[in-house]
Amino acid sequence: MALLKTIKEVGNYFNEIYDGVASLVRGMKVTGGYFIKRGQIVTQKYPENRATLKMFDNFKGELQLIHDENNQHSCNVCNTCARKCPNGSIEVIYKKVEGADGRSKKILDKYIYHLETCSFCGLCVPACDEHALRFDQEFEHAVFDKSKLTKVLNKPGSTCKVVKE
């Protein structure tokens, strides 16, 4: 009986070794298979493919004040986006000018966007009734100086399409 038990134990011992080696071979077969299979490369050569790299349409890059071909935006200084922003990343600075009818109007002076505090929650874009804002496709945000992250979004010399009365 004792001999039988010993034989069984020895058998189990070698079985375990066999199972262990077989499991390693099974795993190696998966990794080895990828050396042979073609068309399974999933990596991209990033800085080289900048020209062809395209983000999805909804991608949240940097905030952008939409300007048309006449250098006109549609911000009417209602300040809703700045109030919706949880981090205070948006400052809308206006100036008062005298309109054609002699009454003073608010027009956009500077639309300041703090990229350094923006958390890309996306509350500002749907908040705008004039659809003046959108996120662009820019994703390379790294700069050497923090002050470069504070941006003025309205282009120089731009005017407003709709002026708030």
Binding site: F56, N58, K60, F120
Partner: peptide, 15 residues
């Protein structure tokens, strides 16, 4: 993450 990005615009933290 591509499915997330296409709809929500971000990959990890979507809000």
């Amino acid at each position: 993450l591509d499915i997330f990005e296409e709809t929500t615009g971000t990959r990890l933290i979507q809000s």
